[in-house]
Design a binder for these strands. Structure first.
Lengths: 151, 151
DNA sequence: GGAATATCGTTCGTATACGAACGAGGATCA
DNA sequence: TGATCCTCGTTCGTATACGAACGATATTCC
């Protein structure tokens, strides 16, 4: 395509193979942005995708240590701390020390958090449906399978 | 699966269809995280994916107004401003007022930015290759095509 | 011309995301 | 037992990401 307009008309071809708009990373970032946008519309802007991941994980399998919870929801120790702190402030989650390991902090849903999560489950399913809506049914499974290989 | 451990043994089945680990959004977030990790390893931690997106876009098509640049690189006005500011501080980019529109700020690569971008192009291609490495050749095109439909 | 409307860039606040460093607690093994 | 190493949670700093609001400039339409 074009040379940068500030290039003093250097005739060097450089690398014309590279097109930003065709790189997986760039496309994936846009797809993720659309997904988050859909998430916010359906779930309401008072809950973020990462906060929901924590609630859903705790709902499915019960409490766990904070760092383990982070690993299960794809967040590092620093990130999960902030997420848990904000859920604590809203009393959707509660913590207690692990009696078997003085280093660990056990995080679990509060009773209010259980109700809240249960109420949101149908909406969370809708988020996935709407996100995948542009694809044909068989394409949806394909996409998920391919993305799983890229983790 | 399990009920939350803090649930007072409520026998209600709730929604057992929902498994966080199977939701596109969650899987896509993990795939994106791996991609960014690969990006950092190959490109070096002094440049972020979004900063690279700006450099690559300016290299391909020359300068443009800041907000348009943001749209082309999938960032809103607030985000692109921060990215441009940081690139300005490193003198990889330069700005000037648009003579035809007093509201616009034209952003373009500096001469140093042109050289810098050109040198990084091969590495950027490698980032895409490594990201897609787990997939068979024909799967790569499929994934990209499907992701494009989700923008 | 002038009012309504739209766009541009900026700023603020909040929420991921993560590298790096730190102290406290656990596990291993000589 | 004690030294070493690992893990856990915490804090700091930096960089996206984006909604919301703002003033300045353009455009549209009467």
């Amino acid at each position: 395509m074009a040379r940068p307009s500030t290039a003093a008309e250097t005739p060097e071809p450089a690398d014309e193979n590279y097109d930003l708009a065709e790189q997986v990373g760039f496309i994936m970032r846009q797809a993720a942005q659309r997904h988050v946008s859909i998430f916010n519309e359906i779930m309401g802007s008072d809950l973020t995708p990462t906060q929901w991941a924590v609630l859903a994980r705790l709902y499915q399998d019960g409490g766990s240590s904070q760092n383990l919870l982070g690993r299960q929801t794809a967040m590092d120790a620093a990130t999960i701390k902030g997420v848990v702190d904000r859920l604590l402030k809203r009393k959707l989650v509660q913590t207690k020390p692990d009696p078997e390991d003085g280093r660990r902090l056990i995080v679990e849903l509060s009773p209010a958090g259980i109700d809240y999560t249960r109420e949101l489950l149908p909406k969370a399913e809708t988020v996935t449906k709407v996100t995948l809506a542009p694809l044909a049914t068989n394409q949806r499974a394909t996409l998920v399978a391919l993305l799983k290989q890229l983790r």
